[in-house]
């Protein structure tokens, strides 16, 4: 029943947003329930602790509802609220600990190692991402999952584009190593 209700509401998301804008608590709740699971997942990319991730998500939803008039039905609501989630997650990480993004210029060369064929599920890859240094993690998630360009990442993280590129390069390299290890361990145990 609840799912049906949510689906019905999803069809009229614009109406929901309009009502939420008028201050309807019911519409706000429906919007929240519709998008919260995915948004919590987004926050979880950056934040290892699920409770912290949830707090950040709640805070981001709150900011979203407070500034709902800036949305004005441009694009879809999910994309809009998701950007707020990303920004909120990054500012959370920055508050938690000082994130140093070293401006290292390295020779980025695409490693085309097609011989590797790793398999991983969401839990595994999330764990690998969690273990990445904060700087690597943020740039990698922003680039690989959120689809940000280096220019945008540089603006969001207040770093240079080159730093963004070097961080992404290192993150990928590290991840590949870990995936390889994971698969090697997996194959060894099987």
């Amino acid at each position: 029943m609840k799912l049906l209700k949510v689906i019905q509401l999803y069809r009229s998301e614009k109406q929901l947003v309009a009502k939420a804008l008028e201050g309807s608590r019911r519409a706000q709740k429906d919007l929240y329930e519709l998008h919260a699971p995915k948004m919590l997942s987004v926050c979880r990319y950056y934040i290892k602790d699920i409770q912290d991730a949830e707090d950040v998500m709640i805070s981001a939803f709150f900011k979203g509802f407070q500034n709902l008039k800036t949305y004005q039905n441009n694009g879809n609501f999910e994309g809009w609220i998701r950007r707020i989630m990303v920004n909120e997650s990054i500012s959370f990480l920055r508050k938690q600990k000082e994130v140093y993004l070293t401006d290292e210029i390295e020779d980025f060369q695409h490693e085309n190692d097609d011989s590797l064929n790793e398999n991983f599920n969401a839990v595994e890859i999330q764990q690998l991402i969690d273990d990445l240094p904060e700087g690597y993690k943020m740039v990698f998630v922003l680039y690989a999952i959120e689809g940000y360009k280096h220019q945008e990442i540089a603006a969001v993280l207040n770093i240079s584009e080159n730093t963004s590129k070097s961080q992404l390069f290192k993150a990928r390299k590290l991840l590949q190593q870990k995936i390889t290890n994971l698969n090697a361990v997996g194959n060894g145990t099987r």
């Binding site: 709740k29 929240y32 329930e33 919260a36 699971p37 995915k38 919590l40 997942s41 979880r44 990319y45 699920i50 991730a53 949830e54 998500m57 709640i58 695409h110 490693e111 085309n112 190692d113 097609d114 590797l116 064929n117 790793e118 991983f120 599920n121 969401a122 890859i125 999330q126 991402i129 680039y143 690989a144 999952i145 990928r172 991840l175 590949q176 995936i179």
Partner: peptide
């Protein structure tokens, strides 16, 4: 696995994920 392929696979695996928040999250 190439760089873009790795990115795409990570994206595909993780973007399908949904985490149900706590029941009292809305109350907060």
């Amino acid at each position: 696995m190439g760089q873009d392929r790795l990115d795409n696979k990570v994206k595909k695996v993780l973007s399908e994920r949904k985490i149900q928040p706590n029941q009292d999250s809305w109350n907060k």
